[in-house]
């Protein structure tokens, strides 16, 4: 039987045709269901974003960015103190968290089988699950109480604890995927172990580590709870990290729960800036992953 005959045979058999038709309908049905559910979930998300953008953009102006908040009743006013505060608090948190996080990640991937690695990994998992308000309270007890005052530094330390798991995990998971042969290539050239880690292993994992760091920053940028008991907030611009400091999430929180419309405006504007910052970080993560992607 030639191929043509076979094909015509197939199209004649109505049984088979019906089967194909049913499968086709099933396909269409399932596809529509998936699309429908996706839209149902995504739409509210987009609406939230849209709403924040709409309310936020109208609040944004040069004076909004460069001024301090005004007392109730006066219009204008801005969030300059919160912008500076957030930058400092997040910056210090990152500066503490990155070296610790990356080192711990390296340790976990290099000495996987040790007891210490096992317990460390367990603690990291637990830390990841601790509600941020609890971290805030713990840091309040440990640092704010001991030092006798609210401070930006204590806020940074609380945020450090929040971003450590993401950095540790992404470092460990990235490095675990780097083939051992790469390390051996370096060692076999007479390169000492520590240089091998610093110059061969870490650069090979840079994209994963970097994206972990950026996602970690994005995660803590909007955290309010750990800052309530630590950085506390400040109506003035402060750069002394041992004193209370304002920050974007705190501004949003304090102004949003206030009864004044002017302050609500400030909260919307601050929320807008925060969201843009986080979106930017997420985009940056994607770019970093692409740019430094290492092909083995």
């Amino acid at each position: 039987m030639s191929l043509d005959d076979k094909l015509s045979n197939v199209s004649q058999s109505t049984d088979m045709e019906r089967g194909i038709l049913i499968r086709k309908y099933k396909n269409i049905f399932l596809k529509s269901l998936v699309i429908f559910l996706t839209v149902v979930v995504t739409l509210p998300l987009l609406l939230v974003l849209f709403y924040i953008f709409k309310r936020g953009i109208s609040a944004i102006s040069w004076s909004f960015l460069m001024n301090l908040p005004k007392p109730v009743g006066e219009t204008g006013g801005g969030i300059f103190n919160a912008l500076i505060g957030s930058a400092i608090i997040i910056g210090i948190a990152a500066v503490i968290a990155i070296p610790f996080g990356v080192s711990i990640g390296v340790y976990l991937s290099e000495f996987r089988k040790t007891k210490l690695a096992y317990w460390t990994l367990l603690s990291v998992d637990v830390l990841q699950g601790i509600p941020s308000i609890v971290i805030g309270i713990v840091i309040y007890l440990w640092i704010v109480k001991t030092m006798g005052s609210f401070s930006a530094l204590s806020g940074s330390i609380a945020l450090t604890l929040m971003m450590l798991p993401s950095i540790i995990k992404s470092t460990e998971e990235t490095l675990k995927l780097i083939p051992d042969t790469l390390k051996e290539a370096s060692l076999s050239l007479g390169v000492p172990y520590y240089r091998t880690i610093l110059k061969v292993i870490l650069p090979a994992g840079i994209s994963g580590i970097l994206s972990g760091v950026i996602l970690g920053i994005a995660r803590i940028a909007g955290e309010t709870a750990p800052l309530l008991f630590t950085a506390f907030g400040n109506p003035f611009t402060n750069t002394n990290i041992l004193k209370p400091m304002a920050s974007l999430p705190l501004v949003i929180f304090n102004y949003a729960i206030s009864p004044y419309d002017e302050w609500h405006e400030l909260a919307w504007g601050a929320a807008f800036i925060l969201i843009v910052f986080i979106l930017l970080l997420n985009t940056l993560t994607k770019l970093a992953e692409k740019k430094w992607k290492v092909q083995f």
Binding site: P179, A185, S186, S188, V294, Q295
Partner: peptide, 10 residues
């Protein structure tokens, strides 16, 4: 020299 070529990927 190893079984699988292992140039430094970076």
């Amino acid at each position: 020299v190893f079984q699988r070529p292992n140039p430094f990927p970076t």
